[in-house]
Design a binder for these strands. Structure first.
Lengths: 159, 159
DNA sequence: TATTGTTATACTCTATAACTATA
DNA sequence: TATAGTTATAGAGTATAACAATA
């Protein structure tokens, strides 16, 4: 069972990761918005996705996705194809330029990370990845519990 | 030595933590900006800090800190005292209300985390905290190396 | 002359609401 | 009527540059 002390410590460490990722993203050689970059990477990992799926994945509004995708499309980094099963929706996929850019970016970050972790063993890195993946699973499970059993006020949106 | 594969995996996991922290912050019972909240927590952890120190800590511009602190001061959550050793600078500290609010928030998040990790052992949590702390250390060390030995183009700011 | 902090301005990211077109 | 996506508008967060006061 998790103690308050160990949770407080973990909280600090997790917050710290925010600064780290921010620094990584800021120094990335990409002439476009950080949000667009994030979408490109997601499309590279997951393959074609609908607008709504992207919105759900990042928990941001569809309207925001709509504008970012429009921007990426204008810059020839993604392409849209109509969903043959539903005339309302679209699939977004990486265009050739987008694929190239995304691969370059990922290579860049992987090198950065490898250089950062040059005194770590592979086992240690895998250990950390595993714990983070498990943390994510636990977090999602808790959210599902709360959503199904809403004794807490509400999702409490604007607070 | 870190392999490309393990780094790629870790990269995905670290990005994931961004979404998690965003969800945590969004559901927090705080009637104010997320940025202000972050500053309050930092002041609670570190004690009185100068404006410039806050800017450096979060790697954002002094002008931004200036406006957030002005807002928090207006809402009686922080207080400013002149630095007796340097007439240009100010110390920012939690006001009584700010101290109360900060403690309530931290208690809330600790409970949230404890509920999330109810099937983790304390040792596992401490293990994860330790690896994250070490990651942060490695990351900072790499940045210092690059800064002192700038064979890469430059800090590459606007990119 | 350099540094601490402020103000003015503009850009990025996001949310809300009103809209369209399909289902 | 419900849903997928768009557009308009507003708010939060940040960076840049010009500035005041102090070192």
């Amino acid at each position: 069972m998790a103690s308050e002390d160990s949770c407080a410590e973990l909280l600090v460490r997790l917050s710290d990761m925010g600064s780290v990722m921010k620094a990584v993203k800021r120094d990335l050689p990409f002439t476009g918005s950080r949000a667009g970059l994030t979408l490109l990477v997601a499309l590279g990992r997951c393959g074609p996705l609908r607008m709504g799926e992207l919105a759900e994945m990042f928990e941001i509004d569809q309207s925001v996705i709509s504008r970012h995708v429009a921007d990426l499309e204008e810059r020839r980094l993604v392409e849209r194809t109509p969903n043959p099963r539903d005339g309302r929706s679209w699939y977004v996929r990486l265009a050739p330029d987008g694929k190239r850019v995304t691969e370059e970016l990922l290579t860049h970050v992987r090198h950065l990370l490898a250089s950062t972790l040059d005194d770590w063993t592979d086992e240690e890195i895998i250990e950390l990845s595993g714990l983070l993946a498990r943390f994510r699973t636990s977090f999602d499970a808790r959210r599902a519990r709360v959503a199904h059993n809403p004794r807490t006020p509400h999702p409490a949106k604007g607070l």
